[in-house]
Design a binder for these strands. Structure first.
Lengths: 149, 149
DNA sequence: GTACGACTTCAAGTCGACTTGAGGTCAAGC
DNA sequence: GCTTGACCTCAAGTCGACTTGAAGTCGTAC
């Protein structure tokens, strides 16, 4: 069925072949066979790639992403950790909301320096109390995992 | 008034001195004077730093952040670009929501491989149509800006 | 008045995530 | 049956964002 040449995958996903090779090298995705030398991918790789993109925009490292939807689509990490990550995302969404508001404020407020505008300061202050600071992954070399879905 | 030693800033903000020096080097923050050799910062730097943290979790590069709240707190970039960034954030929040739901689903759904679970696929498919792919900044060397607030 | 500890500079190193380049292979079209 | 172009491998390079290390400078406490 869905056997796609790497070039096709690249074109459809927008992810360059070099990156696809890199992702395969670190175990994030897997090519299913070869046609001559050319890697062939299952159509599912496209879904996997959007998952990866999603994870990246959320600020996760490739290593973390690999963990979340690890070998054969089942996560490497326990339920509660997954929920914890989901909670992280929730918090991050709140930060994003603050930043969005700050940006809109900056675009509209005529104050000379925004750090002096009380509205702006209040905006930030609200975001400032309750700083949690994400642990920042840890996990040195490449070779992220082995399998996938 | 609020003159703080770099060590105090580091301790209160959670940002290490080396990073503060780095930020100053690239023009993201500015020390106001010296006490002997030691940098002294205005208390406002703390607010600036939370702004930077916020921007970072939102996935902006330091260069972009410098642009948004540029020299002396006034943005370097025009209103409509700021609004465009705000719209980016809006989109990103949507992505985050999808990822959060995906994570929660993965944590609960008993399906053997999630890429085969129709619910999961539907979740992703929804996020997949309408891929916009952020331009990814561009701006090589260090030396981000000059002033700040 | 000297020891200490926290700062200083500057160059170099690290880490993640890729990209680039040289040199090679191969299937398809002519 | 040969050319072509898209792929291949592997090593090295790049970029952003810091961190680390060596060697030095200060103000404060004793």
């Amino acid at each position: 069925m869905g056997m796609m040449d790497i070039g096709v995958v690249a074109q459809r996903s927008g992810v360059p072949p070099s990156t696809l090779r890199y992702y395969e090298e670190i175990g994030l995705i897997r090519s299913i066979s070869r046609h001559g030398l050319r890697r062939q991918f299952d159509a599912d790789v496209l879904l996997k790639l959007s998952l990866i993109e999603l994870g990246k925009t959320a600020g996760f490292s490739l290593t973390e992403i690999a963990g979340m939807f690890g070998k054969d689509g089942r996560p490497d990490i326990p339920r509660d950790q997954l929920h914890a990550k989901a909670d992280d995302l929730q918090r991050q969404m709140r930060d994003l909301r603050v930043l969005r508001d700050a940006l809109r404020h900056v675009a509209e407020c005529p104050a000379p320096s925004h750090l002096e505008c009380p509205t702006f300061r209040k905006l930030l202050k609200a975001a400032t109390r309750r700083r949690v600071t994400r642990p920042a992954s840890r996990a040195s070399g490449a070779k992220v995992g082995t399998g996938f879905a």
